[in-house]
Design a protein around this nucleic acid. Sequence first.
DNA 1: TGAATAGGCAACCATATAGTTGCATATAAG
DNA 2: CTTATATGCAACTATATGGTTGCCTATTCA
Lengths: 106, 106
Amino acid sequence: MDADPVFKALADPVRRALLDSLRERGGQTLGELCLGHAMSRQAVTKHLNILEAANLVVSERRGRKRLHHLNPVPIQEIADRWIGQFQRAPLRALADLKQALENSDE
Amino acid sequence: MDADPVFKALADPVRRALLDSLRERGGQTLGELCLGHAMSRQAVTKHLNILEAANLVVSERRGRKRLHHLNPVPIQEIADRWIGQFQRAPLRALADLKQALENSDE
DNA sequence: TGAATAGGCAACCATATAGTTGCATATAAG
DNA sequence: CTTATATGCAACTATATGGTTGCCTATTCA
């Protein structure tokens, strides 16, 4: 897995809101996902394309509609492989930080 | 906490590498952090400024050196408050996805 | 003191990003 | 068949981003 497109996809608040919406209710159409966003349908399409490229969203054509679904796997993988590394050594990092701040008074 | 600067800071592979480096060894100077990156010192400075603005890195002036430390707290908070939401309902999302893909053959 | 070291500041440039508008296409409904 | 609906495609624009270079400041050390 290439994590970079996932991180980049998550960097935009509109895209995070779209993921939130699809987590709440899967199978939404493009039109439904546009509601509540003060931007054009085409702008939302672009965001969805970025989310699909990162494999965070999967869509299926259903007649003239396109239904969108969240794929939680990439987020899980980032949590496990990347964030986990930072969680495993947080106490040491915080201790370093605390010591550095204390020593700065000398 | 505003999570947006943190997500944006994490979106760049150079900045993730800098965090990795500081996780491995805290207290590195700007010059040390520049080693291994094929870019100017000023470019690295800009990345570090973005990481500091997101509170992912804390630095202290020590004579003519500046020492940098990882602050793991924002990553922890994102993991807990944001990613946790996606991890709590992954089975349902995957089931939705599987069902959608199966139904698409009808 | 004077030179070398470590870093800061500001202007500039190229490309990426996020948005727009206009028009085209395909399916559904009457 | 015709119209309305749902989406797709492409061109264009403005701003953000990531990088550069040149020069300045502040320590350290001989």
